[in-house]
Nucleic acid binder design. Structure first.
Lengths: 109, 109
DNA sequence: TTTATATATCGTAAATATACGATAAAAGGA
DNA sequence: TCCTTTTATCGTATATTTACGATATATAAA
């Protein structure tokens, strides 16, 4: 049997070769960043690493409680890390998880 | 002024250097794929290019109307294309938009 | 100790997403 | 023409998300 006798399935433009817990984790990260406010928070953290919640409250057009809620979603999805410093909480991008995200997205797309 | 006199800002693990309509488009794509059912639809389309809605209805554990709704979200986000063929509609990944997504994600992450 | 500051969480209202059955629409076959 | 098939859309119920003000908590400052 030569190669030509095999059914030709056109190669896809991506593999999406992922499953189980890794797929769940990736979908959770997609969902978390798939919100305009949260994407803006991520952008702000790139240019203002270590900023505190109050900085984001000043920057964003929404209430403090809502900012805190969005930060929680990003934290639980693994995008960011919060460090309590006195009465404030300092936020940074979670480099390890972002690297994991990048590796996986590049691999499956 | 030497380099050492400059304020050292630690380089971020990603740039997220995107804005305006492109940012909106990317966030919409993130949101659409950030759903377990829709991610499964995308995976199915990789291995079953050109399949029809009925195939997905058989494959997924949800009603036909719901599948159709998810397909609409993926279509409107640009992930997939539908082609009417007789009474059926054949679906494929939207290669151009997926390539755009890949380019942008690689660029900003 | 009392007061001020920063933030997370609670309770809740409004908006959006997700699901379903029923039905409309469009094409093919009898 | 009438029936079947396939799919999109409608109407609607339920769940989730997003937003807010109020409040609890924890630390720092007075």
């Amino acid at each position: 049997m030569t190669e030509n006798t095999l059914q030709r399935i056109p190669e896809a433009c991506c593999t999406l070769d992922i499953s189980g817990a890794e797929q769940e984790r990736l979908v959770t990260m997609f969902k978390a960043i798939g919100n305009p406010i949260r994407f803006e928070i991520m952008k702000y953290l790139v240019t203002h690493p270590g900023c505190i919640t109050a900085d984001l409250v000043d920057y964003l057009p929404i209430a403090q409680a809502t900012v805190s809620q969005h930060l929680k979603v990003l934290r639980q999805a693994g995008w960011i890390e919060g460090t309590v410093e006195g009465t404030a909480t300092s936020y940074c991008l979670h480099e390890g998880n972002i690297a994991w995200f990048r590796r996986n997205v590049i691999e499956i797309f």
